[in-house]
């Protein structure tokens, strides 16, 4: 849980670390992480993308082991990692740690957040948390068919503008929206779509003060860190893996250069 070397569900998946973990990454161009609330059809999206047949149950929290698969598109090879379904990334459960650490330390090229269109507000909780960590994300609005049946309409363009990332409506069970999703992933991965993720502001003045004090220090120590405020907040929450990353200087590696843009 606290050691970076215990690699069964070790989060370090950044490209230079991958060979060390024994996952064949020589011929993969992009890593895509799949995050989302439980029971939003995340595994179905995963199966559609990779052609695998992970079990998908109508049970919250079905996927417990992390699944990996791949696909290739427009002459690029993508590796897809299905993260455990979680409601949040702030608590201390193992699942949430796995998901969070992968998004932070593994620095996937794109994080696809699968959300249930019928319960968008609830799902936005996780979406906003993911956007605090990474600035390369795509929102897959799944279960649009159910939303339609329930007369729920979502203004995707407005949502995309609010969140600052591409929003793709989909119905994964009917395999609808998958080509668009793959195209959006490609755009973000290649850097043709530059995300401007929504960042949280509405906090209490006392907390804002603490966060900015700490963020200043962090900026001086680890220049170029993309998610200063979030890291500061995690330190204030006593998150052990972030504390370790600061102590060992591992955090600095995250700031050395934004991911390589496309040839």
């Amino acid at each position: 849980m606290n050691s970076q070397h215990d690699c069964e569900n070790c989060p370090v998946h950044h490209r230079e670390n991958l060979i060390r973990l024994g996952i064949a990454m020589d011929r993969v161009d992009y890593v895509v992480a799949l995050a989302g609330n439980p029971n939003t059809g995340k595994s179905t999206v995963f199966n559609n993308l990779t052609g695998l047949r992970q079990h998908t149950g109508n049970w919250p929290g079905k996927t417990v082991t992390r699944a990996e698969g791949g696909y290739s598109y427009a002459e690029k090879r993508y590796k897809v990692v299905d993260l455990p379904g979680t409601y949040s990334l702030l608590s201390t459960s193992t699942d949430e740690e796995t998901a969070r650490d992968f998004i932070l330390f593994g620095r996937p090229d794109v994080t696809v957040i699968v959300a249930d269109a019928t319960r968008l507000e609830r799902n936005l909780n996780l979406v906003l948390q993911v956007l605090e960590i990474t600035d390369r994300a795509v929102l897959c609005l799944n279960l649009m068919d159910e939303a339609k049946r329930n007369h729920i309409e979502i203004d995707e363009r407005n949502l995309s503008a609010e969140l600052g990332i591409p929003v793709i409506p989909a119905a994964a069970r009917q395999k609808e929206g998958m080509p668009e999703l793959i195209a959006a992933i490609e755009e973000v991965a290649s850097g043709r779509y530059v995300c401007q993720p929504h960042r949280l502001k509405s906090r209490s003045p006392k907390l804002n003060h603490a966060v900015s004090t700490l963020a200043q220090k962090l900026a001086a120590q680890f220049p170029g860190l993309p998610n200063l405020n979030w890291v500061a907040l995690r330190l204030l929450e006593g998150d052990q893996s972030i504390i370790e990353a600061v102590r060992t200087g591992e955090l600095g590696k995250l700031s050395t250069g934004v991911l390589s843009p496309q040839p």
Binding site: M1, N2, G238, D239, Q240, I243
Partner: peptide
């Protein structure tokens, strides 16, 4: 210390 780390380093 180990226990504290596990439960979010409470203050």
């Amino acid at each position: 210390d180990a226990l504290a780390a596990q439960i979010g380093n409470p203050v």
